[in-house]
Amino acid sequence: MNRTEETNIDPVEAEALDFLIAAEFDPNSVQRMPEPLRPYARRILTELQHINSYPVTPPSDALIDATLARIVQEERRQSERMSFSNSPPVSLRRRLGIPNVVAVAAMLIVAAGVAVPVTNQVRHSQSQFMCANGLRTLGSGLSAYAADNKGILPMTAGLASFFTDSTATDSGIIENAQHLDMLAKNGYCDSKCTRCNGTRNLSYRIPMHKSQMYLSSMQRSPVAADANPVQAMVRRGVTPVNFLMSSHNHAQRGQNVLFSDGTVVWMTSPNLTNGPRGLFDNIWVIRDKNGVETINLRANPRNALETLLAN
């Protein structure tokens, strides 16, 4: 079958189409074509441009999580399939011969060695994204709560509780992030939204200034995040050498941070790079008036924009 018969397209039109393909359908390319091709090229462009209005709904953010979850599921299925009995049937062993069995076993070990780290990292990614989704839900809950309460965020424990020892909860003092539980109790979000992946602790902002109590008027800044590792260490009686560490919720690879505009950002460092006066703002500690990061509760924060997230 020759081209003209199959395509039912005029050879000149076909040539015009070839030009357009080469020019990535740039309308300006028509002027660079030989004169006889131009009317054909214009007509093709006009007709194909209709395709641009094909209705497409952008996928939701959940598509990424769902894809990662599917990968983990498939990896599990494959590893189950790969597991085999230690005592294969005698007939199979005889059929394959010992050298072949050894070779297959060696290949399986190598394959497992490659698959396990990849699976682990996908699992980490899945955990990270599930946690981010939870924080997004928490953000919606906080926003709904603030809308019902004159823009004010749920109360916090205040600085006094920040470095109290681990028996504080037992003695009846409510830890800071536990104040978020009232969101779930009052139906602003589900019971898991106040934990990372439903189990691990979160940290919640302690206001350094009364403006930080109002979600509506707050500048874009962190409101909640994965658990504060500095605080956790201090409570265990260890003073960190530096505060540049990531939350233990995700094996210290980074932390999910919920901002006041409802966005959730994965930060591999606790430093906000857009801190006031060009200084970094570590979300785990206070920066005092001298610009020094400290865990000293008596320190006066350098300004009203300082961020402190406490467990």
Partner: peptide, 15 residues
């Protein structure tokens, strides 16, 4: 090439 030519022609016709 032949498929794209045919596809464009068919799309134009149907359109």
């Amino acid at each position: 090439k032949s498929r794209l030519h045919a596809a464009v022609a068919l799309f134009s016709k149907h359109w």
